[in-house]
Design a binder for these strands. Structure first.
Lengths: 256, 256
DNA sequence: AGAAGGACCAGTGGTCCGTA
DNA sequence: AGAAGGACCAGTGGTCCGTA
């Protein structure tokens, strides 16, 4: 069972108690959320409205009523709601120390999302409903309900292309991780650096990044990130222009 | 060239003048809208706000400014904006008489949408943008801009399953049309009757209506209609229940 | 400064219902 | 009554930016 091993890669310290939240009825699929899941220490963060103008005021519908007069629901003392620890660049197999999470853990989150998607698909099939082929809002909602509160859309979308490199060329991905760790680069720099080898892969395969994603069983469930798509397009145009300037500009460039 | 033949199946009388509207730039695909397209006689229908409460008031953004002080833009006399003629049940090859449209014309609209989709896809590929695989809102918008004002989403969605039967079992579809024409049934009755043979086809192919749509090159670009999906699901449950009551209820029913 | 994620927003899929 | 389609609406994909 790799689940506990990998979960252990997430540096805890936010909460000590494994929490098994309500599962959506009918979940018959493979075991995402089947292992232990942890929840960050929770306390009502007050009704403090965020700064942004809220035109649509997303209403009260799902608030669990028990407003101000509420104890500390998980009994662990009045700590504030916290975020996941930030990622640091780790080598393959390396566990992050301190209040950090490593990249194996990051990639594990993508596998978990895949398992949640499979569960959502199974439920949809049983019910004869539309069956998602990608990790959609519905899947993120399901993951949250299943207790995986550490999974969220902005985070997963942010690192998709890093996961893509890991899927498509694990050796190159590992080498990049080692190089960036050695140089002491931060996660943002590593993340940026993941684009280049992906564009090179696309170049070798006719520039069709969608086809590349779709051909890979674990990657096909993720939307191609906009920036990756744009980089591939820009590079293809560059390559085509260079090719024309070399050949003197023949016909039949840019085959579709 | 079948385009003009089929276009002729649409009973005109709304407008005499072929109108070639602005094409979206870069449209390099096959020839939807390449033949003649007609526009219904147009006249500003005034700003009369519709009855429904309009929370979002879709604003002025694209109105072509020239408000009240406007001539009759297509010079054909002040007639009112009209709708397409209603469909009637026709046999294969039969042209509808009077202010009616026949079913060959209906199915031709689906082929036109497919051609518009191909154009949208070609543009997207050229630009390195996301490429739709289905007839989306974007495609309907494109069709309208290309002058095919007679194509709209509610209509196309309404008859998708009729087109599906035409694609999947043309003989059955033709037989149904002849039978319903002979009985003098209206379009609504024919449309309802198209569900049953489709469910029978699904039954023969393991109940996976999505797979059936996706396996057909001209049908795969259309979303499976909700009602058809529900009917297939309900019938599968019925069939499974019957099978259990016959077999006495074994294991391994409802294979997914 | 670097990073996590709540919340927003433009445009979608789906179809109702006022219209002809 | 039967039918065509403008317009609506809940929930989506995408990501900004106030937060820690």
């Amino acid at each position: 069972d790799t689940t506990n091993t990998l979960d252990a890669l997430s540096q805890e310290g936010l909460s000590e108690e494994p929490v098994q939240q309500e599962k959506e009825a009918g979940g018959s699929g493979s075991g995402a959320g089947g292992g232990q899941t942890w929840e960050t220490v929770g306390k009502k963060q007050g009704r403090k409205k965020k700064g942004r103008a809220s035109k649509i005021l997303t209403s009260i519908e799902d608030e669990d009523e028990s407003e101000g007069a509420e104890e500390d629901e998980n009994g662990s003392g009045g700590s504030e709601r916290q975020r996941e620890h930030p990622f640091i660049v780790t080598e393959p197999g390396e566990v992050a120390r301190g209040k950090k999470n490593g990249l194996d853990y990051l990639f594990h989150l993508y596998e978990q999302c895949r398992e949640f998607l499979i569960q959502v698909q199974n439920i949809a099939k049983e019910r004869g409903e539309k069956c998602p082929t990608k990790v959609t809002n519905q899947v993120f909602r399901y993951a949250k309900k299943a207790g995986a509160s550490y999974i969220n859309k902005p985070k997963m979308r942010h690192y998709v292309h890093c996961y893509a490199l890991h899927c498509l060329d694990e050796d190159a991905s590992n080498a990049l991780r080692r190089a960036f760790k050695e140089r002491g680069e931060n996660v943002g720099a590593w993340r940026q650096a993941c684009y280049k080898p992906l564009v090179a892969i696309a170049a070798r395969q006719g520039w069709d990044i969608d086809a590349i994603f779709n051909a890979h069983p674990r990657l096909s469930i993720w939307y191609v990130p906009t920036k990756l798509r744009q980089l591939c397009h820009a590079e293809r145009s560059n390559a085509a222009a260079a090719s024309i300037s070399v050949t003197g500009g023949g016909a039949a460039q840019l085959p579709f």
